[in-house]
Design a protein around this nucleic acid. Structure first.
Length: 279
DNA sequence: CCTGCTACCTGATGGC
DNA sequence: TGCCATCAGGTAGCAG
């Protein structure tokens, strides 16, 4: 559930389900999911607390508790699951191939929220305050926030010499954009991913801002229709491929000019772009 | 401070 | 079929 729109859709869907609920118990089935924190620490902080606010910053999902907070990060493949009660959780969870993979479960006063990531990159942590979470406090401005203005982006761009693609992936500058939507934004803005951030003219910076905002908004709409279904472990976002203009289209014609889409490596990850219409 | 590289994991896919 | 290589929506940690 990787980038900002996916996490935002999860947050909006989860909020009415768990906000105001109390966490009765915490079950950690796979130790790695709370690493480097211990399951005991996570359980101690969360147990007995009420979930006051369900929120998001960048790609982090936040459960603000009576005291402290619980953070979830889905990394590449993490997801949420919902069970009616503890009994259903234990009947369905982690019974080999036929069972549902669950790493951590929050048993609430009504229902059970599960966190699952078979690849074990995702994490569930607790903190006394948001400032104690290094990943969270290092985040730059959230790409969906009102304060993410063209002016603000222009300022950040001018302070960086890195290639545009690397700049957009850097969560400490703008938070929430990942590999897919960085490629998509640069395609919509007609900008070459390899250009350095501080080389953009004011008009180009404005174009990039507009592209980011519209790409994320479009993706969020897509992620909300249909909304995530936590009851179904097989569920995944539908129809996202159809809104993608360039990502994962190596060799296929550019949807604007017909030139075959190129794939290059940047920072060890794939960048897709059109060498004819992205300058 | 900044940048670049590796490690962390599991599963899907495609070539032979 | 099986085996192997490659790829995957992310970030932390470390070296230079």
């Amino acid at each position: 559930m990787p980038e900002l729109p996916e996490v935002e859709a999860v947050v909006r869907t989860l909020r009415p389900i768990v906000q105001g609920r109390r966490i009765r118990r915490v079950h950690v089935f796979h130790l790695i999911a709370t690493k480097p924190q211990t399951p005991t620490r996570v359980a101690r902080q969360a147990k007995g607390s009420r979930i006051r606010i369900v929120d998001r910053k960048g790609k982090y999902l936040l459960l603000i508790l009576d005291s402290g907070l619980l953070t979830m990060h889905f990394r590449l493949d993490g997801q949420l699951l919902w069970f009616s009660d503890f009994k259903e959780l234990m009947e369905r969870a982690n019974h080999g191939k036929s069972g549902v993979h669950v790493d951590v479960a929050l048993e609430l006063d009504k229902g059970v929220l599960g966190f699952a990531d078979r690849r074990h990159f995702g994490r569930v942590h607790t903190w006394k305050s948001a400032d104690d979470c290094p990943g969270l406090s290092a985040l730059g401005i959230d790409a969906l926030s009102r304060d993410f203005t063209s002016r603000r982006l222009t300022g950040l761009l001018s302070a960086s010499k890195r290639p545009l693609k690397d700049f957009l992936l850097d969560q400490s500058r703008v938070a929430g954009i990942g590999n897919i939507y960085s490629c998509e934004s640069l395609w919509h803005a007609h900008l070459d991913p390899r250009r350095s951030a501080n080389s953009l003219q004011p008009l180009e910076a404005r174009r990039l801002h507009k592209a980011i905002v519209s790409v994320l908004a479009r993706a969020l709409e897509c992620c909300l229709h249909p909304a995530p279904d936590f009851r179904n472990p097989e569920w995944w976002f539908q129809g996202l491929e159809s809104i993608l203009r360039v990502y994962s289209r190596e060799g296929k014609p550019c949807r604007r000019c017909g030139q075959p889409v190129r794939r290059v490596e940047q920072g060890g990850r794939s960048t897709y772009y059109c060498s004819r219409c992205q300058k």
